[in-house]
Simulated assay, not measured.
Amino acid sequence: ILKDITEKIEVELKNNTKLWQATLDAIGESIFLIDLDHKILQCNRATLDILGKSNYSEIIGHSCWELVHGTSGPVEWCPVKRMLESGHREATIRQLNGRWVEISADPVFNDEGEITGAVHIITDITQRKLAELKSIESEKRFRNIFESIPIGLHVYKLNSDGQLVFIDANPTADKILNADNKQFIGKTIEEAFPPLINTDIPERYKNIAKEGNTWKWDQVNYKDEKIIGAYEVFAFQTNPGFMVTSFHDITERIEAAKTIRESEKKYRQLIEDSLEGVWVIDENANTTLVNPS
């Protein structure tokens, strides 16, 4: 018994085609199938939007370079051209109709493993790109502040193994320490500043990077073969796993205070040894010093 099922097959094929088209149209990215001559065989609704077209007839049968790039042939960086040469997925990021897009091409193989065409995908990444550009601009502003601020800054990163690693410093840090801080990049805090090993500073810094606390030292005395001085230090977390120490040299201030104390001591001794009576009062008439005489 013979039965003509041609019509049934045609209906099934038509239904399958509709199903695939509906599936493609539900995807937000522009997707189109092209042959080896770069002719577009099928595309989804998102392709109409990203190429600024209103009807599929304006796309199907046309070359992708004609619609995407407005040229008479493949551009030098064409991902399809590169894909045909490499045999695997190729992608690039470009601007298209005022948008930032990622353009990719994936090979389509037949049963013999030969490339018969490509799936061309155009993804609108405008928002992501704008966020990246904004981040870059923000980082530039931060870098300008970081490099011009008149306080020494050291930046550390806490690695997963618990080691606190020196990753950056500003120019003021070089001036304050009279040393090129780039020599410390990539070193642990103990390797960069060995005298700190015998203090609680490394552990406090690690805790700050991990937990987000802050800490202030009114005076940290430091001395090694190249750096010597007294510093006021403030440490704080910038992001989880990262921390910064700000510092300035207070060596001169300490020396000045020492000189004043010594002068006061000499002054007091002179008064104490005077044969004449000396009575010192402040601006509120309070007695501050009376010598034995």
Score class of each variant (00 low, 15 high):
I1M: 13
K3I: 12
K3S: 09
E7V: 06
K8N: 09
I9P: 01
E12P: 01
K14A: 14
K14I: 00
K18A: 10
W20H: 15
W20I: 15
A22F: 11
I27G: 03
I31M: 14
D35Q: 09
L41Y: 07
C43L: 05
L48Q: 01
D49Q: 14
D49C: 02
D49G: 10
L51I: 06
L51V: 02
K53Y: 02
S54G: 12
E58K: 02
G61M: 13
S63C: 12
W65E: 05
H69M: 02
T71E: 11
S72E: 12
E76Q: 07
W77H: 15
M83T: 06
L84D: 04
E85Y: 12
S86E: 12
H88F: 10
E90S: 14
A91N: 05
I93C: 13
I93Q: 14
R94E: 07
R94K: 11
G98P: 04
V101K: 02
V108A: 02
D111V: 14
E114R: 13
I115Q: 02
T116L: 06
H120D: 11
I121S: 07
I122S: 04
I125E: 06
I125R: 09
I125H: 02
T126S: 13
R128I: 03
E137L: 14
E137P: 04
E139R: 09
F142Y: 13
F142S: 05
I145Y: 15
I145C: 08
F146N: 04
P150S: 11
G152K: 03
G152Y: 01
N159A: 10
D161H: 06
Q163N: 13
L164K: 04
L164Q: 05
A169E: 06
T172G: 01
T172Q: 12
D174Y: 06
I176T: 01
L177S: 01
D180P: 00
G186D: 02
E190L: 15
E191H: 06
A192V: 11
P194F: 11
P194Y: 04
P195I: 06
L196P: 01
T199R: 02
D200H: 10
N207M: 12
N207A: 15
I208P: 00
I208V: 10
K210D: 04
G212F: 00
T214Q: 07
W215V: 03
W217L: 11
N221A: 10
D224M: 07
K226Y: 09
A235G: 05
N239Q: 08
G241T: 05
G241C: 04
M243N: 09
V244C: 08
H248G: 07
D249K: 03
I250Q: 08
A256H: 08
T259H: 07
I260Y: 10
S263L: 12
S263N: 11
K265Y: 04
Q269P: 01
Q269M: 15
S274A: 14
L275K: 14
L275N: 13
I281S: 06
E283M: 15
N284G: 10
A285W: 10
N286H: 15
N286C: 12
N286F: 12
L289Y: 09
V290I: 15
N291E: 05
P292D: 09
